[in-house]
Design a protein around this nucleic acid. Structure first.
Lengths: 133, 133, 133, 133
DNA sequence: GTGGTCTAGACCACG
DNA sequence: GTGGTCTAGACCACC
């Protein structure tokens, strides 16, 4: 599991972990029953405090995506893929909706907005395998 | 000048004021020389702490968009329209870019992303003159 | 709002806060719109770390019982009373069920169990206004 | 000796073993001199870490309920039945007391509590010979 | 002033 | 070894 953390971004680190784990499960690169790294290991790997990782894991657990069993590493639940695919679409749609609403409310014309969207869509796809920062 | 504040939204209130003023000037509904409401009046109208309004005005002033002259209401500068049009495009583009980057990194296919964009674009345009909440 | 914390009990402090706030709302001694003490104040009052209080508040917020608005004290939501009454009954019922199931599985006869229940019920009611520790 | 372990329940597994053995002896289904399964066997049967079984046995031994003799399986002591009957009542009473105290402190009325107790008592007795999960 | 986030480090229970 | 809880103290954004 490879995560990319932007410690100085606007989003809290623990949320970045939450959404990236969600995306990884939605995409199938983490499957039900898979054990996830311990809070200590992942904290070390991401150069982040284990408590921060823990907080992300707790959120995922309370969402039914991860399950903890005493003394054992947390693992992906059976329901996780469905939940994550659903949440992924919801997250992505919500963000796109907010951006487009703002664009419309800015007074830009439909054509201007469309052009920006086209340009950025091409750019985003092109950057698919590059580091994003 | 009509502003719509979402006190529980993810964006800070003062930023909402800044961008909406910027958009209003870019769109031409606020013109150079126009006086803007006092901190106290706008705070009252938006049901928002005057300090919050103040903070927005300070940001706009430091950006050269508003100017204060002693004892008189702040007003829109001569350079504001050009500045605001530029910033508007930049703000909008940046938000769209971030949303699309996230969509790509989520593992959704290009087609799925495009479909969401189309749907939300239609929806955002349709909702152009409706209140969004 | 008066809470009684048992720092050495089997239940985590933050859970004690969560259930006691829930009970207080269910009982009507905290009402929708009421502001609750700041994490700092309550932490000081209970001789507990503010972060521990915060954790309880976050749980209550994620359950829709408390709401935070930027820079303002958290307050009880409109839906809280209904939610809390429901949760109260569920918590109490679940605990009683577990205790009785254990009693039955212990091999005690129905009469013996009933006698214990009667005795402890009388005792619990009698102790209603005494300190419980 | 048949034990039912709930690995995801709130109680530690080793405690579940301790109380169930205690109850079995109190109920007479395990008698003084009876040999109990080895740590390894029981661990295998319950799909539980042998260390966990060991911990339960140690507790029971230190309570004088089980005795180990070199090279032979542990066995139930002569004093065990008396001890276990006593502990059984104490355990059951303590749990019932805690549940009822919580119920009272929750602000539910005496009548409401009584109704819940009646309902759950009926249910617990009815489920006496069914599996509880 | 408020809550939100993060770090660091400790201790515990469980397996 | 694992996760769970708690403390202490710091910094930040917002109002």
């Amino acid at each position: 599991m490879i995560l990319h953390i932007h410690p100085d971004g606007p989003l809290p680190i623990y949320e970045q972990i939450v959404t990236q784990v969600t995306f990884a499960i939605a995409a199938g690169s983490l499957r039900p029953g898979d054990a996830i790294p311990s809070v200590r290991d992942l904290g070390h790997e991401l150069v982040v405090n284990p408590n921060t990782v823990m907080r992300a894991y707790q959120k995922l657990e309370s969402d039914g995506i991860l399950a903890a069993r005493r003394g054992r590493p947390m693992e992906v639940t059976a329901e996780a893929p469905a939940l994550c695919r659903q949440q992924r679409l919801q997250i992505v749609r919500e963000r796109i909706r907010a951006a487009l609403r703002e664009a419309v409310s800015s007074g830009l014309t439909s054509d201007e907005i469309k052009r920006v969207v086209e340009e950025e869509l091409a750019r985003a796809r092109g950057g698919q395998f590059r580091e994003k920062r």
